[in-house]
Computed example of a mutant assay.
Amino acid sequence: MSHRFTFRAAAAIAVVGALALAGCSSSAEPDEGEAAASDGTFPVTIQHAFGETTIDEAPADVVTWGWGSTEASIALGVVPVAIPFDSYAGGDDGVLPWVSDELDSLGVDTPIVLSNDGEAPPYEEIAAADPDVILAVYSGLTEEQYELLSEIAPTVAYEGEAWSTPWKDVVTTVGTALGKSEEADTVLADLDQVLADSAAAHPELAGKTVAAVWDVAGTFYVYKAADPRVAFLFDLGLVNAPAVDELSNGDETFYYTLSYEQLDKLDSDIVVNYSDTAAEQEAFLAASYAQAIPAVKAGAVAQVVGTEVVASVSPPTALSLTWGLDDYLDSLSAAAAVVDAE
Rank of each mutant, 00 (worst) to 15 (best):
M1V: 15
V15Y: 12
G17I: 09
L19N: 13
C24M: 11
S25W: 02
A28L: 12
A35N: 12
D39M: 13
T41Q: 14
P43T: 12
I46H: 03
D56R: 14
D56N: 14
W67T: 15
S69K: 05
T70D: 13
A72L: 03
I74L: 02
L76V: 07
F85P: 02
G90M: 10
D104Y: 02
V108H: 09
P111D: 04
S115Y: 01
S115M: 14
P121N: 11
P121F: 12
E124C: 05
I126H: 03
A127L: 13
A128N: 14
P131F: 02
D132V: 07
V133G: 06
V137Y: 05
S139R: 06
Q145V: 01
L149V: 10
I152M: 08
A157C: 08
Y158L: 08
A162W: 04
P166L: 12
T172S: 15
T176V: 13
S181L: 03
T186R: 15
V187H: 09
L188V: 13
D190F: 05
L191S: 11
D192M: 08
S198T: 14
E204L: 04
G207A: 09
A211E: 08
V213A: 01
V213S: 04
V230N: 07
F232T: 09
L233W: 03
F234E: 15
N240M: 10
E246G: 00
F254T: 12
Y260R: 06
Y260W: 10
Y260K: 08
Q262S: 14
I270L: 01
V271L: 05
A278N: 09
Q281N: 14
A290G: 08
V304K: 00
V305P: 04
T307E: 13
A318W: 03
W323S: 12
L325N: 08
L325D: 10
D326R: 02
L329K: 01
D330H: 09
D340F: 06
